[in-house]
Amino acid sequence: MKAVEVLLLDDEPIVGQRLKSGLVKMGCTVETFENPVAAMARIAQKKFDIVITDVMMAEANGIQVLEAAKKLNPEVKVIIITGYATAELAREAMEKGAYDMIAKPFKPADLRGLVVRAMQELGVQVVAPTEE
């Protein structure tokens, strides 16, 4: 069975560190980035199934990442995680094709739940849904 390719981008290193292990356990291959420019470069190289990105970052914002990822692969599921959640941002993200948006602070299980849902929609059998 093919592993689900996940790119996790957040300029807070802890986010990547903490989320990665849980996602790996679910059968995902996870690449974590702290720099949006590097992440976008990687997206251009490799086809990801799921992109999880923060919005407010210094070099570029998550909406740009979303647009870049969708342009290269319209099938990609982009999950927005943000500390600056507003109704406007939510609409902008959804309009630009985001799969879902979740506000910080969230529980790791919340995000894993979203990833599971996305994986199911991608037609992947989820190995071990880690719902609490």
Binding site: A90, R91, M94
Partner: peptide
């Protein structure tokens, strides 16, 4: 039909 009116985790939480 616009995607922006799609419900999502954040808006459902709101």
């Amino acid at each position: 039909q616009h995607h922006k009116f799609t419900p999502m985790t954040y808006s459902l939480k709101c």
